[in-house]
Amino acid sequence: MKQHLIVEVFRSSKHDGMYLYVEKKVGLTDIPEDLMARFGKGVSAMTMLLTSESKLARTTPEKVTEAIREKGFYLQMPPAKDDYLLDLYKTPTESVY
């Protein structure tokens, strides 16, 4: 059986790369307050028809649909930074002079 869901994707105003997927007809009304406090103002990024054939960059349509059905939303976190880049950033540079 093919499932489809009209979803709206909101971009976080506080965190680059963080997105909330919700059912379009519900919007952000049922998102927990503590999550919205962390997420910030939701900026609508797109509306799409989500089907099992949909191509998503960092997840599957099944995971998004299941989370929306169970919790009312799917939260996509920013991609993890490469550890070695973080180490380079944290390591103090020493002068050779």
Rank of each mutant, 00 (worst) to 15 (best):
K71G: 01
L56H: 01
L5N: 05
P32R: 10
T60L: 00
I68T: 03
P79W: 03
K14C: 10
Y74W: 07
L5Q: 09
D83L: 14
K25T: 14
V26K: 13
S54H: 00
E70Y: 07
Y21P: 01
D87A: 15
L35F: 04
K25P: 00
K14W: 07
K63D: 15
V64A: 00
A45H: 15
S13C: 08
R11S: 15
S52Q: 10
Y19T: 04
G27V: 07
L85M: 09
K2N: 13
Y74G: 01
K41I: 12
H15C: 10
A57S: 12
T59K: 04
G17Y: 05
L49G: 05
P32E: 07
P61W: 02
R38Q: 12
I68P: 04
P61S: 01
K81V: 12
I31C: 01
K71C: 02
A67P: 07
Q76W: 03
Q3G: 05
L28K: 07
T93K: 15
R69N: 11
T91Q: 10
D34H: 15
S44D: 05
D87K: 15
V26D: 09
M46T: 12
T60H: 00
F73D: 03
S52C: 04
K81D: 13
L56Q: 01
L49P: 04
K25S: 14
G40A: 04
Q3A: 06
F39M: 07
P78K: 01
E53H: 11
K24Y: 09
M18G: 03
T47R: 12
I68M: 06
A45T: 09
D87P: 05
S52T: 07
I31V: 09
D82G: 01
A37K: 15
K90W: 06
E23M: 06
L35D: 07
